[in-house]
Design a protein around this nucleic acid. Sequence first.
DNA 1: TTACGATCTCGAAACGTTTCAAAGAGTTGG
DNA 2: CCAACTCTTTGAAACGTTTCGAGATCGTAA
Lengths: 346, 346
Amino acid sequence: MSTTSIKEVARHAGVSLGTVSNVLNHPDLVAADTRRRVLDAIAELGYVRNESARQLRAGRSRHIAIVVLDVANPFFTDVVRGAEDAVEDSGVAVMVCNSADNAGREQRHLDILEEQRIRGVLITPVDDSRGSRLEKFIQRGTPVVLVDRNSGRHNRCSVAVDDVLGGRLAGRHLVGTGHRHIAFVGGPLTIPQVADRHSGVAAAVADHDGVTLTVLPTPNLTVAAGRAAAGELADLAPASRPTAAFCANDLLALGVLQEMTKRGLRVPDDIAIVGYDDIEFAAAAAVPLSSVRQPREQLGRTAAQLLLEEIEAGDKHEHRHVVFQPELVVRASSEVAPKPRRAKDP
Amino acid sequence: MSTTSIKEVARHAGVSLGTVSNVLNHPDLVAADTRRRVLDAIAELGYVRNESARQLRAGRSRHIAIVVLDVANPFFTDVVRGAEDAVEDSGVAVMVCNSADNAGREQRHLDILEEQRIRGVLITPVDDSRGSRLEKFIQRGTPVVLVDRNSGRHNRCSVAVDDVLGGRLAGRHLVGTGHRHIAFVGGPLTIPQVADRHSGVAAAVADHDGVTLTVLPTPNLTVAAGRAAAGELADLAPASRPTAAFCANDLLALGVLQEMTKRGLRVPDDIAIVGYDDIEFAAAAAVPLSSVRQPREQLGRTAAQLLLEEIEAGDKHEHRHVVFQPELVVRASSEVAPKPRRAKDP
DNA sequence: TTACGATCTCGAAACGTTTCAAAGAGTTGG
DNA sequence: CCAACTCTTTGAAACGTTTCGAGATCGTAA
């Protein structure tokens, strides 16, 4: 552990401690040859500034954090990249925290971040209720921007996508291509995004007589959960089986696609699939997946910009709520109009 | 920003400052009702400990970092999850840093981490040469464990997978199923993992007369690069086109699969594909991808354990180099023996 | 020659903790 | 009643910075 302090550098260079600090922070105040001597001493001793001491004195950190629901979900990694891009040369660094959709972990992360006097936080919250840890966090004055979630409250910025519209787009598309029995695959419905996507598709279905919507709840939004849900669907008698599945995200959709293929059902002929997020792997699937596209990197970039703005402006900052429009991308998995059902089931 | 300090808590509770600190760090030394009073004051004032001050006094942080080549690659997110699991209740937190395969960014991250007096670092380095930033970092005494890279040097632990063997497994499999012309898709070859995988497959091919290996270099290891490489392959005259592609990772392989399908070439009949890493999306592809499996989470878990061990043991620690064996997982993308070529090209 | 600015350097204070020797207050045993 | 404990609490020092008023040095104008 490097243990050289500014004091030793000063001694080595034959100057006072304050001068070394000036070389580091206000080089223009120091005479050229003194500066030179100090820099040499720094190089020779391998001095590394102690950030804790700096921060203690300065009163604040130079970091922001982004807390995501699932680091392993490509949707979030793209959001992270967007955020990293946005802060690139603003002098702050980004810490990535994974709440794993677990309120306890989210809370612990927030605890740690607050102890660090973090400069600001981007978060897709698990628990955003009144009196939640996050609420307290905000009230104590740390700037927070909600990501992929819009907030009715006015003490924070948010950047979101209109998920109800997204669900509606998917529903309209499926109804429009002739499907009369649609499944919604996703859960838990306590996740607002999932609930919104569901109510969107439900609204689209309700606009048309004779179209029914079946909800297949899943415990989470993973590929494995998609496989399991697809198993249930495939086990249904062909006559009562939905001809299309709208999945709450692409991981689920990929799981459904995989399981259906494995069981000999053809996509989209036997069952059409529409996902959500339009992660890169959606297009890369060998039956390319239709999906509701969210501007993933832009989400992260915009959120980070809002945060920097708030950090900059302080009290003068006015909170804003940015909502992006989703866009349906139709690919092979839902492209073909459904044909009369064939008897071809396991 | 919460600005209450231990001093105010002390005043509020009518005790000295040292007692408050004891309540926080050594509660057993404090009488029950004093403790009670202090805790009440803490709750009432919303006191949050200042980690910078704590760390300054204690001399070290409670964080480790993991620096990965690409946060958006599921391989690395799984490694991260493994590492997070391993440190779960050791009292240290994990910071995730993304070098994006860029030496400059890696350097900047290491600068910041050193200023933080980070407790230890897991890293898949971009630049591990003699005299590199990383080398200096290690020499100054911060514990570092190399991930997915084995090191000849003896001043650090490493956890890796035998990539030469992995390449060899893939090569043997393809040769064994009758392929006589194989393509290696991947690059840049300056990435040691890529070079090893290549030399593995080259060795396997060299063991058999009449089998040729064509190298298709790519600028990076992404899906898009895979698509581009597949385009080149597909454009070749059928007679001179390889019948199998071994890709340096699964992202490339998925790109190749997608582009081939798009161009009407069938996998595996027209061209077999084998990837590397066995990320979850490999199995989820509708033509499930054969792949060389790395124990992703275990890689992260083991690396984190070694790091904690070194942090614990200090000078007494003996560096170790763990090497895992990869395992070939054969799926549909390379399952069928190649048939006589058909003329069926764009 | 003096006075004044301009430049540069210095030294001490402050940031909020943790730690530790020492003191205070009871208790117990002789 | 004193000595020797134990149990609590105290207050000051130290961690490595940054900041800022003040001092030192030198050149220049009056």
